[in-house]
Nucleic acid binder design. Sequence first.
DNA 1: TTGGCAATCTGTAACGTTTCAGTATATTGA
DNA 2: TCAATATACTGAAACGTTACAGATTGCCAA
Lengths: 347, 347
Amino acid sequence: MDRDQTDKDDEASAHERPTLKTLAFMTGLGVTTVSRALKDAPEIGAETRRRVQLVARQIGYRPNRAGVRLRTGKTNVISLVLNTEREIMSFVSDIIYGVSEVIADTPYHLIVTPYSRSQDPLDPVKYLVESGSADGVIISRTQPNDPRARYMLERGIPFATHGRTDMGLVHPYHDFDNYAFAAEAVRHLAGIGRRRLALVTPPVGLTYYGHTVNGFADALGEVGASEVPFNTVSIDQSIDQIRTRTAQLMRRDVRPDGFVSSAAAATLAIVAGIEDAGLKLGRDVDVVSKQSSELLHLFRRELLVVNEDFRLAGTELARAVLGWIGGGAPGSLQSVVKPGNVVSYSG
Amino acid sequence: MDRDQTDKDDEASAHERPTLKTLAFMTGLGVTTVSRALKDAPEIGAETRRRVQLVARQIGYRPNRAGVRLRTGKTNVISLVLNTEREIMSFVSDIIYGVSEVIADTPYHLIVTPYSRSQDPLDPVKYLVESGSADGVIISRTQPNDPRARYMLERGIPFATHGRTDMGLVHPYHDFDNYAFAAEAVRHLAGIGRRRLALVTPPVGLTYYGHTVNGFADALGEVGASEVPFNTVSIDQSIDQIRTRTAQLMRRDVRPDGFVSSAAAATLAIVAGIEDAGLKLGRDVDVVSKQSSELLHLFRRELLVVNEDFRLAGTELARAVLGWIGGGAPGSLQSVVKPGNVVSYSG
DNA sequence: TTGGCAATCTGTAACGTTTCAGTATATTGA
DNA sequence: TCAATATACTGAAACGTTACAGATTGCCAA
């Protein structure tokens, strides 16, 4: 109850941000008690707890993040590691929104950690871990043997990958079932009479490249269609390149009558290439494409689409990291979402 | 030179992160001296300074963010405040990349602070300021009389707005010259013989709504063309709504022969609406549209486009906030970028 | 009555940094 | 020679939090 040393701060100043000390002064308790009362520690009396929490709520007390972080090492930060290569119709905003949605009512903040293509993708992850800047990390562009995942597992920092790995190591992930997508796309094309199919693959080296290629190949065998090799093209190439290569391909004698495309931007280029070669979508050739925004049907009504929800990916990834941070088993924080049906907007 | 109390930590443990104490021990100096030597304080001897900095570099010392933040209040964080409403072809990834690029070689981290449309846009800003979570803030969807800008000016926290305000208050901003865009678009359409023009406006209430409308109106007068009212439509409406309204409009007797559109997604809908009404782009009607990705020419070759670079907006906004934080005059941290020419991909 | 124990509460130290108020040594002025 | 001053460094305190090791009280068993 002595008030000798508390004069300098706390009271009477315009309106400082309240701290535990402020609360302690107001309630007449010690800082320790206040700290514990706020986190429902067992050794605090029920009434005291209620009283402290009431006052805290009234004056809008928020724990100082720097204080907590310095003392406990807990940053309350999730980092989303992103490649900054500019792409048309990037999905990163959707992922960000998804993550934001989940962490909105948690104390977590989302920081975006970028790296450029010229950098080693391991660099930003190393930085985060070594500088202790985040409690959890989300990475994308996952590879079957991913050094980033391996590194974080070694260092024991919770993370989730967008896309699976294939290293025999268990960690949280979220993935879209690209095997099923490619297979369904092939089946659909076969169903409307297409027999010679080409695949526009994901970036070589990423895990879902393999999934997509396998789904495509397996379904080809199943329906008895054949592949028109188009290996030189993947969705991370430039629009112009894809367009040119497609036009070249379509001018050949043995040209595909169906395409499976792993990304909407690439699809725009493919269609342009097809039309450059004087052919018509829906008549000479059909295209099944993944898209993350409902826009391809505006582009050409004949396009066949499968939707991939990146906002969902964001929420799942966020839930996964938070789950791991919260002590959940990594193996139980994995999800794969099945693609919906192939959608047609024309007849 | 006594080594009695330093035994517990520092040496011999596997590999803790180095702190000032570590450096002090290694150099044989006091923590204070080390701290000062690292920031080139004047009262440190030249050789000592060099020695400390050398050792620091060698062992990869990085100041502990929580320590600095707790002591000084400096967070080394820039927050980008974003509306999370999902839009087709969102530009937010570009802005993020732009901001990231600028802060990449600074100690700053970028945190993304989202808010949903149902929230008061002031909420996230209040949160940031009251919780002292950032040294600087970037906001978009700026209004002529923007409560967020006013609030941050009052509280003295550095910020930059994407888009100008009109409150007689001075603060950093970056803006695209939408007046010039709309005016140029009108002139271009007039130049190819279009006389009855409709405008698809930005969201009502945002500053650039006014700029766009004024540029459009002024240029109409200048070239002697007339406006076909289309006031019910703005770019933040849904694709379907815009499409339907456009089709309705195009079926009327007095229909426009030219459109000016403030966003690529809306343009897709407009074109769809035009074609729904049985009319043909380039023959019956021309459309000038802004776009932030080079994709509209793939959609319809006849589209006329003006490019807006959101990555540039990101870099400019980041530079502006950092400039203000660094003590620059707010009035000197403003930029408006002129639109490029109207680009045609057909003839 | 007393010792033990559970229930509540408290002060101190520490996380890593910067600031404040020195201290020790060398240099200068008279 | 002595004091004043500049130079180069230092320890202690503080930012807000939590963990540790008590302290105080009341109650019960013996």
